[in-house]
Computed example of a mutant assay.
Amino acid sequence: MSTVQIPLATRSPPTESEVRILSTVLRAGECTQPEIVRSTGLSQQTVSRLVNDLLGRGALALGNKRSSGRRGQPTIEITIAPQFAYSLGIALMTDALSVALMDFAGNVVGHEYLAMPVMSRKAVFARLREIRERFFAATPLARDRLLGAGIGILGPCLDGKARFNPPRALDEFAMVPIDELFADELGMPCWVESDGNAAAVGESFLGAGRVYANFVYIYVAAGLGGGIIINNRLLRGSHGNSGEIGRMLPWRNFQIPTLETLVQCLRKEGIETGGVSPMLAAFDPEWPGVDEWITQSRDQFSLIASAIAALVDPEAIVFGGRLPRALADKLLPALELFDDARREMPRPLPRIIASQTTYDACAIGAAMLPLEQTFYATMV
């Protein structure tokens, strides 16, 4: 059995006020102390003291000078210190493994995507160890500053914690505590979320969450899932299954719109891609069959988005997951939010937008899990 190593960076855990400051700076990218005071509600004296403490510990760094446009000394921007800590994000898919190395500022400094014909424990852990060593060779500081690993996996959570019921291709990861399984194999602290929840966390810190504090994330992949962010926090639900978007449509009455159904539409038009991963690698929005998939899917997506707007009333609905941006650009204008448009003042409706993150959404979100669990805050 592997020994789980606790990184130096986590041996002095931040206070609640420090977490608020760090989260504010991460989402803003850079900000001044007065901006931190306004955003956190903390006093100027408290912010000054805690910022200086975090600068001394190496979690924050001084950035550029910013002129206020008035007389006096310019203010100095505060930024996250990228090299303070690192985290690993692992996305377990039915046919692929995606792994990201992220620094403390949310930058992806290493990423590998591997098509996996067999997603067995032996194959996955062997590849993970190889990938981790390649990341360490390219970023030596990460070896001693790795906070841990986050894992995103398909399927519903069974115990509100770490047991999931994924598709058959992930049988060897079903019904077991995923966090303990990976911690034992990798020798580091591990956290796990559904792919949709993980991606929503990543989007909250590094994408649309920098503009919208309340949004619902729709995770489009081989299946259909999602996550809900309320006041910058992930809403997990009683059993960890909030945001299971695909279950809003009874499969007996609707064709669930997924990338698998897109592959089927392409196949009918003579475009043989060999599955979701190869299709995404070569995706062309002008392929015959793409427009047919949009026609088949827009009513279902419109129904889902309209139900979300009515129930949650978010500022935005974000389409992401493994959905190619070129496909999102064609799909989203075709969607409709159902509204009675009563009188001349209809109710406010959320914006429908594409994900603002890059790389693999689940891997990025999974990499955020160790960071938010130890230094930032999204969970409720």
Rank of each mutant, 00 (worst) to 15 (best):
Gly69Trp: 03
Ala149His: 07
Asn253Ile: 06
Leu235Asn: 07
Asn107Glu: 13
Gly321Tyr: 02
Thr295Ser: 05
Glu272Val: 14
Ala328Asp: 01
Ile317Leu: 04
Ala85Ser: 13
Ile131Tyr: 03
Ala222Asp: 04
Gly150Cys: 07
Thr32Cys: 01
Lys330Pro: 02
Pro13Gly: 04
Pro166Gly: 06
Ala28Tyr: 06
Glu315Cys: 09
Leu349Trp: 04
Ala305Cys: 11
Leu50Tyr: 09
Arg49Pro: 01
Glu133Phe: 05
Glu18Gln: 15
Gly243Ser: 07
Ala354Cys: 10
Ala123Val: 11
Leu327Glu: 03
Val192Arg: 01
Tyr219Cys: 12
Glu35Gly: 01
Leu181Val: 13
Thr94Asn: 14
His111Gly: 01
Asp329Ala: 15
Glu260Ile: 15
Phe84Pro: 04
Trp191Cys: 03
Gln45Gly: 10
Arg298Ser: 09
Val47Thr: 05
Leu88Ile: 12
Val4Cys: 05
Asp159Leu: 04
Val47His: 01
Leu26Phe: 12
Arg27Gln: 14
Thr46Gln: 06
Tyr212Gly: 01
Val109Glu: 00
Ser194Thr: 15
Leu266Ala: 09
Arg66Tyr: 01
Ala28Phe: 04
Asn214Tyr: 09
Gly226Gln: 03
Leu62Trp: 14
Gln356Thr: 05
Ala28Arg: 14
Ala328Gly: 08
Ile228Pro: 02
Ala123Thr: 14
Phe164Asp: 07
Pro7Phe: 03
Gly72Thr: 10
Glu286Met: 07
Leu234Asn: 05
Ala334Tyr: 01
Phe104Pro: 02
Ser12Leu: 10
Gly150Arg: 11
Thr32Trp: 00
Glu272Leu: 14
Ala354Thr: 13
Leu26Ser: 11
Ser12Ile: 13
Ile90Tyr: 02
